[in-house]
């Protein structure tokens, strides 16, 4: 640090910011790796069907393909809203 640096605003450590952001996005993308291409569409269509009956949040539907030895398991989990909070169709 030179004397003149004293008057400059101290830059943030952007390398650490980059590393943290990468760590998260890379982990997320690795988790999705190898899963079939149709999953996002399947998720969207399932959500539409479920919404006909229950008013769920878009992020309440979680789909995963897990590998269990030779088998592949499609895991589907839907978090329903709290009772009485929302019945989608009244009519």
């Amino acid at each position: 640090m030179g004397i003149l640096d004293f008057f400059k605003s101290k830059p943030k450590n952007t390398a650490n910011v980059a590393k943290e952001r990468l760590r998260i996005i890379v982990a997320q993308e690795r988790a999705q790796r190898g899963s079939p291409d149709y999953l996002p569409t399947l998720r969207r269509e399932l959500l539409e069907v479920i919404k006909k009956y229950v008013n769920v949040d878009p992020d309440a539907v979680i789909i995963n393909v897990e590998r269990d030895g030779e088998h592949e398991v499609l895991e589907l989990s839907v978090a329903l809203p709290e009772k009485g909070a929302a019945l989608a169709s009244e009519g």
């Binding site: 830059p11 943030k12 450590n13 952007t14 390398a15 650490n16 980059a18 590393k19 990468l22 760590r23 890379v26």
Partner: peptide, 17 residues
Amino acid sequence: RVESGDMMSIADVQEIL
């Protein structure tokens, strides 16, 4: 630039990949 904190280091990249 690595030393001044605005470029990821070898160890950073290696750790992520």
